[in-house]
Design a protein around this nucleic acid. Structure first.
Lengths: 329, 329
DNA sequence: AATCGGTATGTAATCGATTACACATATATG
DNA sequence: CATATATGTGTAATCGATTACATACCGATT
């Protein structure tokens, strides 16, 4: 590989001059500049970012830890991150935990050892080990999607969004509303959305049957089974069901259709996420739009603030949501 | 930041000994090892990958150039890449062109300057400038999705897949088959799939009306309009339409439904990509499964072969496909 | 007793850039 | 004319690791 020294030699200058030219730092004469440019052209020289980083401590890389590659939620978030960060010359270094919680800590260290300038974590849980590790990280860090104490975060109005959705169902005349959730170890999706559901039901003095509350995992299949449970085990069948993700809602939709019921006449259905899928199923799904793309952008701006040590917002960044009212309710 | 020198000093050894311990190269006494381990524990020392790479020329990073972040196709491909590469200790550095062709060359250089050990390009086009740049890259390189001369590639059976789909439509009794394609600057999706369509029609001596062939861009909206054109402008309405992506097919589906026609009775419809969406629309979409996840894995294996200089397959890797026969045909 | 191989460690060069500092020359200012 | 000031360039230290080489000690072998 051709180095700055080699370029310098060929252009008959010192490496310092080449560096000055490259970085527009300090004076370089017209003639020297031309000779250097010519050599660079001929040799295809590209400076080693690695050597540069070693000296300057700037890598222009942000580490991103994701629970899963290829889910629509993360895709959108990464997209938002990239939009903002690429404009500032940053690149993203991916780390995929595949929902393996232990790996988050491992990756935190790995990314730090790579001298990334900041780390964005899309979290599905908030355990103490992880929190401790984050505290001693000592580089700009942002978490998206979960509320972590004393940590710059971008979070969603999980509870009030869920609550508003239930309110909407009730407003539409439903009094028997079922709920398909996920494990509460995912505080945001599992706990807070459930909290919203319970709060809304309580506020309207509506009783909840045990079997109306189902806990599923994050896939369509699981939504199907949860709905099946609700239908088969309930004493009183609900007339509406709220699932904490669109995938679960679509699984539920499949079961409802199979059971020969009409949506929304016999059973209303709502999800969360405003996934693309939700727009194209029949009937189209009423859902909550959390604007994950926007969350990525906010996280990017936040990490940039932390890196540049200015305009650092205090407190969490709480993103708003929108109810997407479609045909399933 | 704490460095190897600092660790060495505190453990009362030289940095060479610390390095030897860390890398299991050379001899280190039990006592020295324990002291070093203790210091590392206390200080939370993590070696700088940057300094390491500068010396060893190994970064354990693979650059990935994508046309678009967050499309299902790329997501799956990246997922496949990551699965294989993460197992070998590699991480992915993302570069997103946002369909801006000029950026591909820019990123090629950028990634090289970052000393990535290899580059995977998910290509949408194959222009000469790009090809020239790839030739002089001189680091392991793999292209996915487009056939580039003299370049290690992972490609799909675009033409025969399209042809087989048309054959299938014909077999189902259709003789008037329309086509929704994209610009031929995307050789794989735009040219080869069209070629398959034309070949199949020709083989069965079926005439094609001009307006049956529409060119769209990659979104649902565009599929809708293409279908509208077909319906409004054709002298003879087709009874089946093949769209080169599922999104386009779903756009077409929307129009067909709006027009009050039944699928597949009045109009059969097929797409490409086996997107998740295709499974959940009504009716479910007949499509072609190219197994993008698998493509990512193959690309990863190929780049690993190139890096390790062994088991290098000669010729392209051509991936098989499967017809997914659903209710829309 | 001399020699050899295994064990253990340290010194210093190296990777490819940046940058503080010194120095030289040219031009402008009072 | 002396002195500032701007321009242009090179030398060498530095970032934090790896590693070739030198050195030293030890027990075993001849």
């Amino acid at each position: 590989m051709i180095t700055i020294k080699e370029v310098a030699k060929r252009a008959n200058v010192s490496s310092a001059t080449v560096s000055r030219m490259l970085n527009d730092s300090g004076y370089v004469s017209e003639e020297a500049r031309d000779r250097i440019l010519k050599v660079i052209e001929e040799t295809g020289y590209v400076p080693s970012e690695n050597a540069k980083s070693l000296r300057t401590k700037k890598t222009k890389v942000i580490g991103v830890i994701l629970p899963k590659l290829g889910s629509e939620t993360t895709s959108r978030m990464v997209n938002g991150l990239d939009r903002v960060l690429a404009a500032e010359g940053y690149q993203l270094l991916l780390a995929n935990t595949n929902l393996n919680a232990g790996k988050e800590i491992e990756f935190l260290k790995l990314l730090k050892s790579r001298d990334v300038e900041g780390i964005v974590l899309s979290a599905t849980n908030t355990n103490d080990l992880l929190l401790a590790e984050i505290q001693k990280l000592n580089i700009p860090f942002v978490v998206v999607g979960q509320d972590m104490p004393d940590t710059p975060s971008v979070v969603f109005k999980e509870t009030s969004a869920a609550q508003e959705m239930i309110d909407y169902l009730i407003e539409k005349g439903h009094v028997k509303v079922a709920f398909i959730g996920v494990s509460e170890s995912d505080r945001a999706v599992g706990m807070l959305r459930k909290k919203g559901y319970l709060a809304a039901m309580k506020e309207h003095d509506l009783p909840i049957e045990d079997h109306w509350i189902q806990t599923a995992v994050f896939d369509v299949e699981s939504g199907y089974h949860a709905m099946k449970n609700i239908m088969e085990k309930s004493d009183q069948r609900p007339t509406a069901v709220f699932a904490v993700t669109d995938r679960l809602a679509i699984g539920a939709m499949n079961y409802i259709k199979e059971a020969g019921l009409r949506i929304p006449e016999d059973m209303a259905l709502a999800g969360v996420g405003a996934s693309e899928l939700s727009q194209y199923v029949t009937p189209s799904l009423t859902t909550i739009d959390f604007q994950y793309n926007n969350a990525g952008q906010e996280a990017a701006n936040l990490i940039l603030s932390l890196i540049n040590q200015k305009n650092i917002p205090k407190g969490k960044i709480v993103l708003d949501y929108g109810l997407v009212k479609k045909d399933s309710v």
